[in-house]
Amino acid sequence: MKALLSKIRRVGRVAEPAPRRPAEAPMRPELAGSAQVRCVDAGSCNGCEIEIGQAFGPLYDADRYGVRLVASPRHADVLAVTGPVTRNMATALRRTYNATPEPRLVVAVGDCAIDCGEFAGGPGVHGPVDSVVPVDLAVPGCPPTPDAIVAALRRVTGR
């Protein structure tokens, strides 16, 4: 405990200074200042998941903009979908979308979610995310940087 305490004192604040507030108003006025995110891995290589994990880590600290990860689509306002949608995940993604109460937003995270990227034409691939559920916001990149993910989520909360 003493070691942890001295480490807390030594490390201090690791969160980087916040970039400028987004100029646009929040995408949905109901979600201003608070958005809960449910991640859906529709067939990703896990590269995007690592970057999402970083976005919610202490360094980028997406929490400070009112964004939080939740365990259930019922608690969520935003679905962060990664990867090309595989045949096995298409129904699951559609059900997750239907289980999310309105108003809801879908953020396609990564090139694969936008246009199947590297995996286009693969035998198990159903299609990009917008072939299954409507996409409101896209974060390009393979994988996208935590900065880009945080910037997209800040457009949702407007903070």
């Binding site: 490390v11 690791v14 969160a15 200042g33 809960q36 202490p58 929490d63 400070r64 009112g66 109460p101």
Partner: peptide, 26 residues
């Protein structure tokens, strides 16, 4: 959050969450 080195969402965040939830469709 501060002890973890984060900036934190602010003391008022639970109220913002509640306000948001009340506006959602049941």
């Amino acid at each position: 959050a501060r002890m973890e080195g984060r900036a934190g969402a602010g003391v008022g965040q639970p109220w913002r969450d509640l306000r948001k939830l009340m506006r959602k469709k049941p």
